[in-house]
Amino acid sequence: MGQIEQAITHPTAEELVARAQAMVPWLREQAEAVEETRSVPASTIEAFRDAGFFRILQPTRWGGYAMSPEVLYRVLMELGRGCPSSAWNMMILGIHQWEFGSLDVRAGDELWAEDSTILVASSYAPCAKVRKVEGGWMISGQWPTSSGSEHAAGGAFLGGRVLDEQGKPVDMRAFLVRREDYELIDDWYAVGLAGTGSRSLRLLGDTFVPEHRSHSIVDYQLGDGVASYRLPFNQIFFGAVSSVIVGFANGMVDLFVEHMVPRQNIFVPGAPAQNPFVQEKLGNAVLLIRSARARILQDIQESMGYAERGQAVPLNQRVHYFLDGQGVARDCFSAGHMIFKKSSARGVFLKNPLQRQLRALLVGANHITQNEDDTSAMLGAFLLGQGLPPGVFELPAIP
């Protein structure tokens, strides 16, 4: 299985997006149970697997489609309309296949030698204690919020800072550890996305990670091979988070329209759907969501253009893309809250799925990839000639 290189017949982007759209009613039906059980059922992960979603970014060497990240983004934008927690798991468990496209092939050969459908989880927070040793790295530690980890038999990518002899950071890396090397701590009790199973992960002790199972999160290298694997890690991962958040917001629009169209006012004649303030809020909410969606797709299309020409994505563009993606949750949460307020008292009941979508937006907006305040200042400083913080887009300079 590890040596699959032949041409693989796979569905088109439109077929994959259509499959995601067809799942939305089914996902919406199970969303409440997913929250109550605090877990996405294995049957949902299997449905995503059968639909080919986990193959979208997987290299052809291991049976994948090696498609542009744009395809996964569009799929996530649909799935998020139905069950936020399930879509979030798909996002996290589906993005790592891209990571293997820029790793030493030995990592993928080891993981998928017997079964190319095995999934990998992650927690990129730089929590590892890291020590360079012969042939690789020795790491230890505990990491928070590893979403979908109960479905990841293949292990997890874990983040850690590499320090020099003076204790100064010189790199931030991801380390792929095996499932048998860690335990999961059932501590995910959250106001939204409760079903993602985002448990803490703790290594059982000092753990050796071979060099070929690690990569720099900061050091952007163009590399050879398929164009989609020539893109910056941060942009691809951050873009996936932003995409699923767009799905949450569009799910709120779907539900709001269904909620409002048949309603009648209690105190005055007429229907809320005829109220110009309701109409205005809905229209402006859709504008915010569509604008966020357009940014994500335009950025990845432009980036793929560079990669297909064998060029690195320019730093100037990467800084702009960073803000484009990190501003998505701000816009989508604003849109969601705007229309939620117009749902009146009916919207606050737990049986009304509108509040679940809004809570998902709230939690998604707190994700580190959605920190638009700091990123806005970063872009502003860059445009004003003040430079960029070390270790965000490039490795810190070594004196």
Rank of each mutant, 00 (worst) to 15 (best):
E70I: 03
A153H: 14
E36C: 09
V75A: 07
Q326R: 12
S140N: 15
H151W: 04
L158I: 12
A381P: 06
Q370M: 11
V286D: 12
I236N: 04
L193P: 07
F54R: 10
R19W: 10
I92F: 07
L288N: 15
Q235H: 10
Q311H: 13
V348W: 11
A87F: 08
V40H: 05
E110C: 09
D224Q: 15
A294K: 14
S68M: 02
G80F: 01
A345V: 15
L297A: 07
N250H: 12
A335G: 14
S122K: 02
Y189N: 14
L76H: 02
M90W: 04
D331V: 07
E110I: 01
A42C: 03
E114C: 08
Q30E: 08
A307E: 05
V348Q: 06
L119P: 08
K341R: 14
I4N: 05
K129W: 11
A33T: 13
W62F: 13
W143P: 09
L203K: 06
V348C: 08
L57N: 09
Y182A: 02
T207E: 14
L231T: 00
P399A: 14
P276R: 05
D206L: 12
L361W: 05
T375E: 05
P25I: 01
Y321A: 06
E5S: 13
A125W: 10
G283W: 05
I368W: 11
M252H: 04
D164C: 15
L158H: 07
I4L: 09
P232M: 00
I398P: 10
M77W: 06
F237P: 04
A240K: 00
A152L: 10
A107R: 03
M67D: 06
L388Y: 03
P144A: 12
N250T: 11
S343R: 01
A329E: 01
I300Y: 05
A312P: 08
F175K: 03
V17M: 04
S146L: 04
W137F: 15
I217E: 10
L384H: 13
I289K: 10
Q386V: 11
G136F: 08
L76K: 04
H367R: 10
G94E: 02
E14Q: 14
P144M: 09
E258M: 04
A87Y: 03
P262N: 09
R293G: 10
N250F: 12
S344L: 13
S242T: 13
I236P: 06
T37L: 01
A121R: 03
